[in-house]
Amino acid sequence: MLSSVILTLFGLTVLTFLIGRVMPVDPVIAAVGDNAPEDVIIRARAEMGLDQPLPIQFLHYLNQLAHGDFGMSVLTKNPVATDIARFFPATFELATAALLLSIVIGIPLGVWAAVRQGSITDQAIRVLCLAGHSVPVFMLSMISLLIFYSALGIAPGPGRQDIIYDGMIEPVTGLLSIDTLIAGDLDAFWDALTHMAQPVIILAYFSMAYIARMTRAFMIDALKGEYVITARAKGLTGLKVVWSHAFPTVAVQLITVIALTYAGLLEGAVVTETVFAWPGIGQYLTTSLMNADMNPVVGSTLLIGFIYVGLNLLADILYRLLDPRVQ
């Protein structure tokens, strides 16, 4: 298992490196501008190590990575690692809150639909989930902003916090909802929560739909099991049969679904972040890409790849821990 993880990560590194090199943009021109004199361009190219052959560049790149160095961002003038440390917590906060919400709602909905398979309840949940999975997130985001922010004025606008709190909260974890609590500023905490509400609910709706559908499918299968008849024959209540006998057998499968949903939320929030002007990794990645700033693009891509592999590994480990049938 470990060797395949290492192999995947190495492949990912090679791929991101090559993407950074074969993109039809010249990072040197992007850095010094296209009006720079010839000798500046040559000097800059040498400084950036881009005059070396590709394999040498790759080794150099690996060495940098090993030291946590993703290069500099031309746009922000900061090391990419510093930028990521600043932007990633915003995405992490959004994705984690959305994931928790979608688990808490999606799993009971899916179980309910499975138990009532074919009923009106099942159909209603099906429509709800279908809508959640097929209406584009950016559209829901804009409609939500139009209604709750623009028309009704009951929700805050885009961004992570009101301008009056800007720079007032000492970043400790980078998660605004937690940092405001650490600072003991309840007004700022409430402000952070209300700003999170819209993007979190919209992202959660999308992933909730998927989790609920998968839960329903797994549960329908589990409820057909002979051990469910056994549990009923023992005289257990319906709730116990469903939650303590059928559900534990699908919980293991759900872990994989949840891990992949989480990974998807962590990298797929790009559109939501853009609509809500959320200063997260997705926005950082797109802005850098638009400006041909390749180090941040490669760095963020690598980070997202590592998260995917990491979450997959975690799901695998949990699988082994939770299912007695897997050795």
Partner: peptide, 14 residues
């Protein structure tokens, strides 16, 4: 009520 095949009638994860 005793069912036919314990391979399927016992809960696999308990």
């Amino acid at each position: 009520f005793i069912l036919q095949d314990p391979k399927y009638s016992l809960n696999p994860v308990k």
